[in-house]
Design a protein around this nucleic acid. Structure first.
Length: 684
DNA sequence: GGGCCCGCAGGG
DNA sequence: CCCTGCGGGCCC
């Protein structure tokens, strides 16, 4: 029965069968099978409920359970690690040969061995608990054997801690320590963290420690998509030549003042009552701005020299930046020649001073204010940057600042940022946020000038009693008006970028939000982790590249590859070239294991709270349909608008022509995505 | 992939 | 009102 429900709702997963627990209760249907309905595995001796087996046994005598007879491709959750399996079998044989035990005692001991050291007396939900036990068995780093920390995934589907991986490649090794498959050069030089896997580990930990289902996990990392926006940025008549590059900002959705410090809370988010959570990701700086995490759409520092700095962006604009995740070295602004109407300039041409934004940062340092930090995909030299978009990573404090001659030979303002947020960072598998930590040793402080450290207690600090970061001193009083602006003026609207690729996350299931495949929009099944650290169902990714239209139209970032290169294989999420990877992609089995296990728990939660799985299946279907129908609609609408514009006003500039072509490309994309989505129903 | 160019937002 | 700015679209 439970099996059927599982099958009914999770169309994309292989359902792992459940044996009977130590009490003899079937973990699938919760019934206690009698002898005629029981079957014992010849290898591990575990008891199984015959009606709950997905495949009827051919022989009752020489039968092996799925855990023991697991084919290599499917050896995931329930199977003990290969190195352990031998030990397990011999341990079971030892039990069998122990004449001092009764059959019942033997069975119990066998079960304890197989299911981990389960204590049946306090076991309320045996299947969930054992499922969680199983989750972690495969999640150890192949190098240090500990639970993965900052997981990175190789193309061969093996997971390592970032540090272990870096150590390995630092020794000049260019093959996986697990299977000797080659590690691509780009991954060796800059491995990106598999944030979805980190999230899965956190959720599994929470599910284990609190014995709660995934649907009630409090901290949500979530991609904030455009369709949650009631409003978009737009361009004026004057600005429309360059589209979004010159767009006015859309509505600011949060009720914070421009000079508001600290995390953006649910109370600042009147529509969603959610706030901005660590891990929230936006398409670009303009969208990031609309949620208040970092308001300037070009500048890297938000602040006022007499008030402090509220937020910074790490976007790779200054080569002296150095990112270590929980702490980083940031560079001030200025010192560049911006003549000739430039907005930025890679070259430093004079020294930076502690003035304007640099002084604002120094003030935040002195006072110990929390500074919001966003990381952009444009930061190419960091392991911690997202591969696509702009991500909110929480608040940091500036512990020290100084000036020092930088790589380009000019004095730069330098800042040591250290994380101090109550939510865990997107790259960690820690469940808790930060604790006060020892400051790193900064080599470049030697010979630095104008060194500034905080004197006195910081305003934002860790409260030992409450166990969290909070304002120890009242935050500075705002000097700016409330930043509720709605410059949306229908008379001068031109939609900048048609959101043809509609991504709906209305489905309540947390798992889908966190682990949805970016191609089929279902929960990942047999995930492949690309070298750019994005995950897709194996079937989806391989299917997507068997036809050409999807790839061709996916490539919308520049449109150049479309003309010059055909058949180029790009990551559907971030457009990184993954042709090499696609030659021999390997399933990330560990990740699949956690996700499947979390799914099972979610099912159990739904079941125990009386939710009908059939109903949720229907919901899912309905939402899928609306997802598929929306994109082409909206895309066509936008296309029409732009066509009208083109006809009304003669396009004298070349750039206008480009804009029209782009819209067409986007509509094509929407159709193709829809096709892929509908074709990819059976993506397992 | 690099260079060019632009409007806009916001500090001072 | 002037100056600054870790964008972003597009051309080459």
């Amino acid at each position: 029965m439970a099996q059927q429900q599982l099958n009914g709702t999770t169309t994309t997963t292989t359902v792992t069968e459940f044996p009977c627990n130590a009490e003899g209760v079937c973990m699938a249907c919760q019934k206690t099978p009698d002898e005629t309905d029981s079957l014992f595995c010849k290898t591990c001796g575990s008891r199984w409920h015959v009606p709950c087996l997905p495949v009827p046994p051919k022989s009752a005598v020489d039968w092996e359970c799925s855990d023991c007879a697991v084919p290599v491709e499917n050896a995931v959750v329930s199977a003990p690690a290969p190195s352990v399996a031998g030990d397990l079998v011999s341990a079971i044989r030892a039990i069998e040969n122990d004449a001092s035990l009764t059959d019942e005692e033997k069975a119990k001991k066998r079960q304890e061995l197989v299911g981990g050291s389960v204590k049946p007396a306090e076991e309320e939900k045996p299947s969930r608990r054992s499922a969680v036990m199983d989750i972690f068995s495969g999640l150890n780093c192949s190098t240090c054997m500990l639970l993965l920390e900052r997981p990175v995934t190789t193309p061969c589907g093996h997971n390592f801690c970032l540090k272990c991986f870096q150590k390995w490649v630092g020794q000049g090794k260019r093959s996986c320590s697990n299977c000797r498959a080659a590690i691509p050069a780009k991954m060796a030089s800059n491995p990106r963290i598999n944030a979805q896997l980190a999230m899965a580990i956190r959720m599994a930990k929470l599910a284990k420690s609190e014995n709660v289902g995934t649907s009630s996990v409090p901290k949500v990392y979530q991609v904030v998509h455009n369709d949650e926006r009631p409003d978009q940025c737009y361009t004026t008549e004057r600005a429309k030549k360059t589209g979004k590059a010159n767009a006015c900002s859309g509505k600011i959705f949060v009720t914070i003042q421009r000079d508001y410090f600290g995390p953006i809370l649910a109370e600042h988010d009147p529509n969603r009552n959610r706030g901005v959570l660590v891990g929230d990701t936006w398409e670009d700086r303009m969208e990031c701005r609309q949620w208040g995490a970092h308001l300037p759409h070009v500048a890297g520092i938000a602040g006022q020299s007499n008030h402090g700095a509220q937020s910074v962006a790490l976007s790779g604009g200054y080569i002296d930046d150095e990112d270590h995740g929980e702490w980083f070295l940031y560079t001030g602004s200025g010192g560049r020649d911006l003549s000739g109407n430039k907005r930025t300039n890679k070259n430093q041409s004079f020294d930076q001073q502690f003035e304007n934004m640099n002084e604002a940062l120094r003030l935040s340092c002195k006072k110990g204010y929390p500074v919001r930090v966003v990381r952009s995909h444009k930061e190419k030299r960091s392991n911690y940057a997202p591969e696509a978009g702009v991500r909110y990573d929480g608040v940091y404090r500036i512990e020290k600042c100084w000036r020092k001659v930088g790589k380009q030979g000019h004095k730069m303002c330098r800042y040591l940022f250290v994380r101090c947020d109550n939510e865990p960072a997107p790259w960690t598998s820690d469940l808790t946020g930060d604790r006060p930590r020892k400051l790193p040793t900064i080599k470049e402080l030697k010979g630095a000038v104008d060194v500034t450290e905080r004197k006195g207690d910081p305003s934002w600090d860790f409260d030992e009693e409450k166990g969290c970061w909070l304002w120890k001193k009242p935050p500075p009083l705002s000097k700016k008006p409330m930043n509720i602006v709605d410059p949306f003026d229908p008379t001068k609207i031109k939609v900048v970028k048609p959101k043809a690729k509609k991504v709906s996350f209305k489905i309540k299931d947390r798992l889908l939000k966190e682990f949805g495949c970016n191609i089929c929009r279902k929960v990942l099944s047999s995930p492949l982790t690309t070298p750019c650290a994005h995950n897709f169902c194996k079937g989806c990714l391989e299917g997507a590249f068997s036809g050409q239209s999807y790839i061709r139209n996916r490539n919308t970032k520049s449109g150049r590859a479309l003309r010059t290169q055909k058949n180029i294989m790009k990551c559907p999420t971030c457009s990184t070239d993954i042709a090499d990877y696609l030659q021999n992609p390997q399933v990330n089995r560990e990740m699949m294991g956690v996700i499947e296990s979390l799914q099972r728990q979610a099912e159990e939660m739904a079941e125990s709270s009386g939710e009908s799985s059939a109903k949720s299946d229907e919901d899912l279907k309905a939402e899928e349909e609306s997802d598929v129908s929306k994109p082409s609609d909206s895309g066509e609408e936008v296309l029409e608008t732009i066509k009208e514009n083109d006809e009304e006003e003669e396009p004298p500039q070349k750039k206008r022509k480009g804009a029209g072509g782009k819209a067409v490309a986007n509509v094509e994309e929407s159709i193709d995505v829809a096709e892929v989505a509908s074709n990819a129903v059976a993506c397992s």
